[in-house]
Simulated scan of single mutants.
Amino acid sequence: MSYPLCTPLGRFGVVTREEGPHRCVASIPVGGAVNPLTAAPTIAPLAMLVDHVGGLVNHHRREADEWTVTSELSLELIPEAVDVVASAPDVPVVATARPFGPKDEVALGLCEFTHRDVVLATATVRSFFIRAAGRVSKFPDGPTGPPPPVPLAEKMAVTVAEGGGAGQVLAQASDPVLNNSLGIVHGGVSAMALEMVASAALNASRPHEPLRTASLRVNFLREFRSGAQSRYVGTTLRVGRRTGVAEAQALHADGPPAIIARVTAYR
Score class of each variant (00 low, 15 high):
170 L>G: 01
175 D>Y: 04
178 L>F: 04
179 N>Y: 10
180 N>W: 05
181 S>R: 14
181 S>E: 15
182 L>I: 14
183 G>W: 12
184 I>D: 02
188 G>H: 04
191 A>N: 03
192 M>Q: 14
192 M>E: 10
192 M>V: 09
194 L>C: 08
194 L>E: 06
195 E>N: 03
195 E>Y: 03
195 E>R: 02
198 A>M: 13
200 A>K: 13
201 A>V: 03
202 L>R: 05
203 N>V: 13
205 S>F: 06
205 S>M: 09
207 P>Q: 13
207 P>W: 09
207 P>R: 12
208 H>V: 00
208 H>A: 10
209 E>D: 11
210 P>N: 09
210 P>Q: 09
210 P>S: 08
213 T>E: 15
215 S>C: 03
217 R>I: 07
218 V>C: 05
218 V>A: 08
219 N>L: 03
219 N>G: 12
219 N>I: 00
220 F>A: 02
221 L>N: 03
222 R>L: 00
223 E>W: 10
224 F>P: 01
225 R>Y: 08
226 S>P: 05
228 A>G: 04
229 Q>M: 08
229 Q>Y: 07
230 S>E: 07
231 R>D: 07
232 Y>L: 06
232 Y>D: 01
233 V>K: 01
234 G>V: 07
234 G>Y: 10
235 T>E: 15
236 T>G: 04
237 L>V: 13
238 R>D: 06
238 R>A: 06
238 R>L: 09
239 V>A: 10
240 G>H: 10
240 G>K: 11
241 R>K: 11
242 R>D: 08
242 R>P: 01
243 T>G: 05
243 T>V: 08
